[in-house]
Structure formats: C-alpha cells, structure tokens
Nucleic acid binder design. Structure first.
Lengths: 210, 210
DNA sequence: TTAGCCATTGGCCACCCGGCCAATAGGCCT
DNA sequence: AGGCCTATTGGCCGGGTGGCCAATGGCTAA
C-alpha cells in the first residue's frame, strides 16, 4: 500500500468536455500525491500527449470526438503494453467495460463513483499495476449478456439504418437468407422479438452508439 | 457587466456524477465571485436543497436518476417562476435544449464549453437575468427539426419496443390504421424509411432516451 | 375566416419479416 | 476426435409494413 516512489503520480487526463477536464484537474491537483502533467480532448492529441509525456497513469474517457477512447487505448497498448490506463467514463454499459478490459485497461471507473474511490483506483493501478474493475452499477440491468459476433454487430449497424434483409445481404455481399440468419441470431441474443426492439436493446447495451 | 451585488453569487450544483460535482465545485470555488452553497445528485434532494438554500443560480444537469433535470426545472419554475436555472449538461440534443428553454431555463450550456464560457453564462443569468442559450454544436447535425406531437412520441416509444401497428393500436385504444398513420407521420418527420430507422433517429435526436 | 396541423379511420397491394424445417464448412477448445 | 460456435444458404408461410388513394372533426395561428 506504500507508494512505489516518493514523487507524485504523474497523470494525464483525456476527456472531451473542458468543464469536466478542468474540474478533474482541479480536483486531482488538490490531492497530495497527484500531479496532472497533460490533458487532451480528442484522440489525436491524446496519443500525441501520451507519447510526449509518458504519464504514470492515463485517465481516459470513452466518448471522444473522432475515434473513441477504446481505440486510443488499443493503440497505446500496442506501442507500450506496460502503459497504465484507467478508463474514467460515464458509460456504465457492459459492452464498454468488456471492451476496455479486453483492450488492456488497468481499470474501469465510472464518473458516478466518489472522488475518493477514483483516487484509490488511480493509486491502485499505479502501485499494484493490477486490474481494478469498478463496475459501479446503478442503472445496470441484469443483462443475460450474450455478446454479438463481429458479423452480427455489423449487421445490427445496418439494421439500425433501416435496411431490409435483402439490402443488408447486398451490402455485405451475402445472400438475403444469410442476413436473415444473422438478424435472427441478434434477436435471440438480445432477447428482442423484432428488429426494431433489437435496435433499442443495442442502444441500451452500448453496442450501438448515438 | 458590473455585479448586481457585492457578495458572491450563491450557486447550487445538481449532477449525478460525484466526480463531476466535486470537480465543478472545485473549479467554481476557485473563481472569484462564486460560492457553491449546495449540491445534489438526484431530483428529490435537488428540490429539497433548492427550497432550503434558494441559490442565486442553480446549475442543473439533465440526466439524473429518477425523474430528469427538465422535470426538476419545471417543478422549480412552478413554485418560483423567477428562479435562475442554468442547464449544464453534456446533452447536445436539440430536443433537450428545446424542452429546457420551454420549461423556463435561464440558459443552456453544454459541458463541452470552456470553463470561462460557463463562468460568463452564470454571471449572465444572474445579472441580466436574461436567457443565454449556448447551443454549442460540435456533433450537432443539421436537423431539419420537425417536432413530434405528443401522440407520435407515445407511438414511437411503443415502436421502439418492437410492437406492431396492431399491438400499438390495442395498447392505445385506437385502430391499427390510426397507429399506422402515426408511424407514417413519424417516418416522414424523422426522415426515416422504416420504423427501425425511426428508432435510431429518435435516439440520435434525444427524443428517445436509453 | 381560411389555412394548417392533429387525431382518427378505411382499403388496396407489393414487399418484407421472422419462425420453422434442414444443410455444409471452418475455427477453437477439451 | 467430438462438441460448440460462427458463417453461409435454401424454401414455406402467416402475418406485418408502408406508400397511395381518400375522408371527418377539432383546434390553433394568421
């Protein structure tokens, strides 16, 4: 539980909302042991800033303009597998937690936790370097949680746009019958009775994004 | 541009994310002329806190557990029409801006604005007591923006659940033909070619909430 | 008042949907 | 090797979808 070193933990914040960033920076700077060395509001500058500063811990939001935080996480882990990235987001969607952890996040905390919990999580990923999954669930439903395959997600993204099975088939270069099979699988996995409901469930679960 | 009084503007913050609340409180307290006198994280305590402290300006988020911020706004304006409420939210949906202003918000700023803009907005609604609409658009699409009637929103909320026109008719006590007419109107207004796409557009525009 | 939107209802019709039957083939874990 | 998941494709069929034709009464903004 003792600090790894005596100097402050160097943090970098990535969040697309200036108000949130400034607030966070203020909050963390006021806490002993933390030092905010960089900030970014989009994917590009997040990567650039990370490469330049190499912070001890990167606090990463998921919803970013351009490509999302999970993509940023993947790229960072690709070039520095030992990087400590703590996802800090307002999304409580299982899908986001799952993808983040799969992509190598050191932890996942939602903005619905108390600041103290956040502080502890930051220290946790820095010192223990271990995984701290904070899946705070408040709105969380008891999802049965069958995950969609890549193909199915692809199909769902066409379904949401109102395409018919035939059109989906044409767009993906498969028969309409196959598109139908994918849609059926989606309905079953999401517990939906119609494609319309599947779209709703997709949004609710975070598989589909606005 | 001079202050209405010499004392600090008394603020109350309502946001369901502790991290955001703490950050905001820190940020605002560090700014001369502002004093955070109360905070709340849900609708009930927001109303209770407002009645007790009667802040000069209430910073209100829309997404709250239980009933949403717009409802809180309505109740406050009902019992104190002169109350100064500045919506501070991450939602850039036209629908939310529209409803907020219609409900009597003194202003609407998104969390994607710079802190300085937020400070200015707070001073604005306090001093001038005027309406400061800050519809910062970054992700905003050029919505043609036809609003759905009450009935149509009701129907859309059934459509999203996967109900057929016949079922919608039964649930609303109207003929299936009428339900169809409503769905057709929804499709036209949202620029959708199928009910599935209408659901997507509904989520994108903030008419439907997760 | 005239215009326009809203809620309501009807039929015709080509097309789409989704469940059920069944099959082949590749990949991965045990 | 056998089991399980995934991707692929086929037909049959009752029921749903959405555009088009047209109509009524109420309510509101110009």
């Amino acid at each position: 539980m003792r600090a790894k070193t005596d100097r402050a933990i160097r943090l970098m914040l990535v969040d697309d909302h200036p108000v949130m960033r400034a607030g966070l920076a203020n909050l963390l700077s006021g806490e002993p042991g933390f030092s905010v060395v960089a900030q970014a509001s989009d994917a590009r500058s997040a990567l650039a800033g990370w490469r330049e500063h190499r912070p001890d811990v990167l606090l990463l939001d998921i919803s970013l303009p351009g490509l999302d935080g999970i993509e940023v996480l993947r790229q960072i882990k690709a070039e520095a597998p030992q990087a400590h990235v703590l996802m800090l987001t307002s999304s409580e969607a299982k899908e986001d937690v799952r993808q983040s952890m799969a992509a190598g996040a050191a932890g996942y905390v939602t903005k619905s936790v108390d600041p103290d919990v956040l502080f502890a999580a930051i220290r946790g990923v820095f010192e223990r370097q271990g995984v701290v999954a904070q899946g705070e669930s408040r709105t969380e439903r008891d999802d049965v949680g069958e995950t969609l395959s890549q193909r199915e997600q692809e199909v769902l993204n066409l379904v949401r746009q109102g395409f018919s099975n035939g059109e989906i088939g044409r767009l993906l270069g498969i028969s309409r019958r196959t598109a139908r099979a994918h849609v059926s699988a989606i309905l079953r996995k999401l517990g939906a009775s119609a494609r319309t409901e599947a779209v709703t469930r997709g949004f609710e679960r975070g598989i589909l994004k606005i």
